[in-house]
Structure formats: C-alpha cells, structure tokens
Simulated scan of single mutants.
Amino acid sequence: MANVQQRECVFIPALPGLEPALAEEAEACGWSPQRVDGGVELTGAPGLHQEANLRLRTASRVWLRLGRFPAPDAGALTKGLAALPLGPVWNGRGAPRLSVSLHGARFPGPDAVLAAAARAWGLPSVERAGALDEEAAGDGLTLLVRVEGTTCTVSADTSGEALHRRGYRQEVSRAPLRETLAAGILVLAGYDGVAPLVDPMCGSGTFLIEGAWMSQRRAPGLARAFAFERFPGFDAAAWADRRARAEAEALSAPRAVLRGHDLNAGSLGTARRNARRAGVTLTLERQDVRTLVLPRGLAPGWVVANPPYGKRVGESEDLPGLYRALGRTLRGSFAGWRAALLVPEDPALLRALELPEARSLAVRNGGLRCRLLLMSLP
C-alpha cells in the first residue's frame, strides 16, 4: 500500500468548468498541479492540505490521500482498509462516514464497501455520508472511498463545510452566486486586482467581495474553521503560524476601485452587510442597468455580471429586452473594458446581447448549464 507520511497528496475538486482556474491558482501558489477528472492533484510537504484550504479561492474542498491499494475482491478491500494509516485523522472513537464512488468496480455496490469498512475497523456498522456539496455530514470524520476497476483510493475530508462557505455571506439575493464560482470567473477573466471592477447587477455583492479579497491578497479561508482542526494529529501551533503568515500578506484595503449597482434596494442592503462582514468597503449605488452611467474619469477595468436566467418564480420581466439593454450599456458605458458575463445556455438571450465575439466556456451555476462569456469591449 502507498501512503504519504513525509509527503502529502491531496485531491481538490472544483465546480464544473473551473478546473483551469483552480490549476492556475495552484500554480500561482508555487505548486505543480496535475489536472485530473473534476479537479487537480497536488503533492507537497506536510501541511499542504491546510495551505490548500486556506488559500485556494476556487476549490470546493480538499481531500487528503490516505492510501491506494489493489482491491480485486471484498477480501482484499477489507484488508486494504484495515491497513490504512488512520491515526492522524481518526482517534478510533465513533465511526467515520464514507462517501463511496464506484467506477467500473466489480463490487455489488456501496453497501459492500460499507460492510468491508465495518469489518476492517471492528465496528458494528459504518454509515454512508450524505451529499457533501453544501457541507460535511456532521462533525465526525468523512472518508472518500473511490474504487476504479480493481484499485481503491481512500482520502479524508479536511474541509468540513464546503469551501464556498467563506463566512461573510449570511444573506443572499434572489439569484445567489456561489463564492467559488465568482472567484473562478474572475480568475478566468484575468482580473488583476488593480484595475476597477464593476458589477452593474451586483445582487448580494459576491463578485465584488471576492474581487476585493483578490485585490487585498487576502486568503479566502481566514475567517472560517476546517475539519482538519479536529484531527488527532492536528498541530495547532503550525496552523497558527500558517494563518499568521497569510494574515501578514494581506493588504489593509483593496488596491482597486470596486463598484456595484442594482435596481433592487434590498439587494444593495444585503451586499452592504455582506461586505461589512467580509471587512471590505464597496461603492454601491442604486441604478438601473438600462440607464447606468459611470462616473467621469474612471479608468477601464473589468465589468462582470450574472444577469437573471428567468428560472425563478416571479421573474416575469422581458428577459430578451433586459439582455438587449445590458448589451447596450456594455457597448456604451463600458467601451474599452474587459467583460465577463455568466449567462444561461439560451441562444435567444445570447443574440439579444449583441456583443462582439467572445470566448465562451461551459460552466454550471446551481446545476444549470451556463456559458461564461469573456471578451474585450470595443
């Protein structure tokens, strides 16, 4: 069995479409990511899983590799699970929950994996973890058991709550945008953290807050807790040093101008409170995207928007008309800017924007198929 004592290996998933942004972030941190299905793998010194949780803006969570072994049958699976080095992550009390992923495996199903784990660890039973998209299944240890063909890989969840839970967004607008998706869009758009960033339909302010933290070089995990802090092998002093280094790197204020506009006064109030919790100050004004005018002298930068998709109850406005108005505003007020738009896969709405040719990337927002349009506005 291969395990990592002197070196750590982690698997870091990202939302569909954000894998390139995650790899770019990891490289910027000085790591050498290996692109794999659904994310990246990293290998590094002990504590890599803590650094990844703390610093990566586009990561969904961080899995710490515990071991990989051949498992051609149930007996081999039980033997391999029994030999795992679980001491650093599990104190033997309670029972780990398992997230089971089978790919071309010959086992009967997830129940066989749960039964093998119970036999391996001398437990009455082992529960299957619920969906980890939003948050971890309780406060206990969660293990990912991935069986591909006859090879089993076991990893420990080091994040706990999903990493888009930064801690500042306790309120959302009508169309919430996940923090990791907002950050990933900014990375893919090439946002430099220095030029102005404007969101003409800002909602609860997620784009702007993520942009502000990028501009400040503030690590996204500074204001939250992680599952690895409950591990038996957790070194509190080393973690305190990592946090202190990240805090020292952060600037006291963003280097960029950050402006948000929205027609909905309630959304602007939510954005202000979210920004306050995030420790940033945004310029927020109530303006309709149809008539939006930027202040004189504002240098060109990035404009980002997540316009309505028409999928929510009560969204009865003329979406093609709204998209035409958005396109006119972008071509007028934002001439010379770089733009990033997250829009649904709807040819009629794309045509309504009447924008120049754009780089188009497939992404998902809340399970919906979307296109990320990246362009320079003439």
Rank of each mutant, 00 (worst) to 15 (best):
R7C: 13
C9R: 11
P13C: 05
P16Q: 00
L22W: 09
E24Y: 11
E27A: 15
G30L: 14
Q34V: 13
R35Y: 13
A45C: 15
E51Y: 12
R57L: 04
A71E: 06
A74L: 14
A76F: 03
P88M: 01
P88T: 04
N91M: 05
L102P: 10
R106Y: 10
F107H: 12
P108F: 09
A118I: 02
E127H: 02
A129W: 10
E135T: 13
L144H: 12
V145F: 10
V145W: 08
T153C: 10
T153D: 05
S155G: 11
D157Y: 02
S159Q: 04
A162I: 09
S173I: 10
S173D: 15
M201L: 13
G203Q: 06
W213R: 00
L222T: 07
F226Q: 07
P232M: 12
A237P: 07
A237W: 12
A238E: 03
A238Q: 05
E247F: 02
A256D: 03
L258S: 04
H261M: 12
L263D: 14
L284K: 00
R290T: 06
V303H: 07
V303N: 02
V313W: 00
E317I: 15
L319C: 13
R324H: 00
G327D: 02
G332M: 10
L355Y: 02
P356F: 09
R364Y: 09
G366M: 00
R371K: 03
